[in-house]
Design a protein around this nucleic acid. Structure first.
Length: 333
DNA sequence: TAGGCCATCTGGTCCT
DNA sequence: AGGACCAGATGGCCTA
């Protein structure tokens, strides 16, 4: 299922990458543990390990019947009949004895297949890296896991689709909650933290315009997905220009809600988040059930937890990807 | 130390 | 036949 989903996403990602506006993953990928996991020198080790494993398996391997070699046939006939003994004869093609020549060919074939598989997975991971860059909240040092990247991408696509369908701006809470559907706590915190800071910046930049911003006071109306998003609960609310409190809109634990057909809960809300921001925080595992921002009296959008590393390397893609300028313009209108 | 995440190997299946 | 794709197995690394 997951791989199917990714297969669907992959062509789009590659198209995006081909468009030239997505940074070359190789330049950054080589800096990470994961992406440099198998360097050239390690490739040899890998192949050696593969070969040794293949050798050990082939020592008892008699299932390789697709390697037809007329030179080996004579030996195989003789060798195959010797120890039939008590065993019932099997139907189908005779199993062939693994001669050194066939073992070598089999080994080479396996190594080639392994190399192809490695390349394929590297391509897949490269595409996934590109996908990480176009979903909200991107960090060079704290990559989203594969599954979280796919989930976030799905939510993001859904959220953008909703924007297009409705032609109106959802509020930041709706947006964040939509993005975070089904995400893990750390990822939820990361995404929510990113957008919270966006909110902070946006509010800071625009606060000279009275009445422009509206922090929803009513509970967040509904979820488009039939599964809970209680992770956004936060014990602190900071209304007005101080920031957006997620809890005031959050469901209780385990709450589930679904849009009634044709009903949109967000049509009258305004956006409160910005697509631009200069600094962000992230934490791989912040305190459970608490977002890494916004305690009462705290600096708006600031993350003061000691557990939260600096955000210098965390970005939403919006401040990097030219195609999103139009989207930004839409948000800021 | 358990659990999550990941890279890799491997054999099976499908397609060209 | 060979390549692509897939899923299971395995082991390493990291973090709580």
């Amino acid at each position: 299922m997951l791989s199917r989903l990714f297969s669907d996403v992959l062509p789009d990602v590659q198209r995006l990458a081909a468009g030239g506006w997505v940074e070359d993953s190789a330049s950054e990928g080589s800096k990470t543990k994961d992406d440099c996991h198998l360097r050239e020198d390690e490739m040899e080790d890998s192949e050696t390990r593969a070969s040794s494993r293949a050798d050990s398996e082939m020592a008892g391997d008699d299932d390789d019947d697709d390697d037809d070699d007329s030179l080996d046939d004579d030996e195989e006939e003789g060798g195959g009949d010797e120890n039939d003994g008590d065993k019932p004869k099997k139907r189908g093609p005779k199993k062939r004895q693994m001669t050194p020549a066939r073992a070598e060919r089999s080994k080479v074939r396996r190594q080639k297949a392994n190399a192809r598989e490695r390349t394929r997975m590297h391509d897949l991971n490269s595409a996934l890296d590109n996908l990480r860059k176009v979903v909200p909240c991107y960090s060079k040092t704290q990559k989203l896991s594969k599954i979280e990247t796919l989930r976030l991408a799905k939510n993001y696509i859904w959220a953008l689709g909703e924007i297009l369908r409705n032609g109106k701006r959802p509020d930041v809470v709706s947006y964040v909650q939509t993005l975070c559907k089904g995400l893990s706590q750390p990822t939820t915190n990361l995404v929510a933290g990113c957008l919270q800071l966006n909110t902070r910046n946006f509010l800071t930049e625009q606060c000279t315009e009275p009445g422009r911003f509206h922090v929803p006071s009513s509970p967040f109306a509904a979820h488009p997905y039939p599964y809970p998003c209680s992770r956004l609960a936060s014990p602190h609310y900071q209304g007005g220009s101080g920031g957006v409190n997620i809890r005031s809109h959050a469901y209780g634990p385990g709450y589930e809600a679904v849009y009634p057909p044709g009903q949109d809960s967000d049509t009258d809300r305004n956006y409160h988040y910005s697509m631009h921001y200069s600094g962000l925080t992230t934490a791989r595992a912040p305190a459970p059930h608490n977002l890494p921002f916004g305690p009462p009296g705290a600096r708006i959008g600031g993350a003061h937890s000691e557990n939260i590393p600096p955000f210098h390397d965390v970005h939403t893609h919006h401040d990097r990807a030219p195609p999103y300028e139009d989207l930004n313009a839409f948000f800021h209108n």
